[in-house]
Simulated scan of single mutants.
Amino acid sequence: MKGYVYYSKAESVRNHAFIDDLIIESEKIGIELQLLVEDEKPNSDADFILFRDRNPERATTFELKGFRVFNRAEVNRIANDKLRTFELATLLGVPAVPTRRIRSIEEINSYPCVLKTVDGHGGNEVFLCTSTADAKLFFTKFHDRKLIVQPFIESGARDIRVFMIGNDVVGAVKRTGHGTFKSNYTLGGSVEKYILSSWQEKDAQTISQAIKSDYVGIDFLLLPDGRWLLNEIEDPVGARSLYVTYELSVAEKLMGYIKVKISRE
């Protein structure tokens, strides 16, 4: 069995350790896995492409050429559009952070609020605005982007990231921000292992089943009263927080899953 793992050039450097792990675990189970970067062309005899980029158009191109892509282009499209993610949750009946498209400051009903680019990731294009002046700065910086607004919801800067391979929960972590309302581990937040309740696992599986995902992270804000609200779906999802809280190889589980899927299709 042959396959590729696709990354942008910059992300291939940043994620070299995970790429190495994927290649090693693939070899153990008889998969020849190669790195595919930027505009490199895959050989037509490859059985699959593990797609690790935020680029649904490129994923679609691979699909149109007949490759089995993990995750599908449609998963990439939904996960990298926060408004589509909210609309999906609404259709599924999964509680989510209220989200709407915004085109001008006048459309903001109250402060504080959270402004985001619809396709940002890693917490870098997320701003807490407490006044019109804050909102003006955000609109000036991202004037050429599609923007959304959400109410500020007090969560103690805590959220839960659930890692899903297929419809199975691989693990979950609680992330807590320090000195900011953002909980992202890569922005300096702390992380710890988290055990899901049965209803939390059901919410995560409802989403993964609906979008037919292969490997995603699903982020929920954890509220003080114990409830949670879907915030984002991450594709591609980074596994750094999972590696430091669990004694498992995400690469081993992911490549094993892919081998089974390809064998059955």
Rank of each mutant, 00 (worst) to 15 (best):
F70L: 00
M164W: 06
I19K: 00
V75A: 10
G120E: 04
Y111S: 10
H178C: 02
V114C: 04
K65W: 14
A73V: 03
Q209N: 14
L248W: 11
K253H: 14
A135F: 07
A17H: 12
K212Y: 09
T140G: 15
R103I: 07
A133N: 05
L33R: 01
T186V: 09
E232A: 05
E40Y: 09
A17N: 14
S241D: 11
K202G: 01
E192I: 01
F18H: 10
L92Q: 05
A172C: 06
S241K: 03
D214C: 09
R68A: 12
E107R: 12
K141C: 07
G171C: 02
R161L: 02
R227F: 04
H121K: 14
A96C: 12
G188S: 07
I207S: 10
I108A: 08
L187S: 06
M255T: 13
R54K: 15
D144N: 12
G226A: 11
E154G: 09
R240G: 06
N231S: 11
K212L: 10
K146I: 02
S249H: 06
T180Y: 06
E232V: 01
K259Y: 06
L147D: 08
K146D: 15
L128F: 13
K2D: 10
Y194D: 02
A157F: 04
N43P: 00
T60W: 06
A251T: 07
A133P: 01
I31C: 10
V94K: 05
S110T: 12
D39Q: 11
Y257P: 00
L36C: 10
Y4C: 00
H178S: 13
Q200D: 00
F127V: 15
D134F: 11
A17E: 15
G123L: 05
R101V: 10
L187F: 05
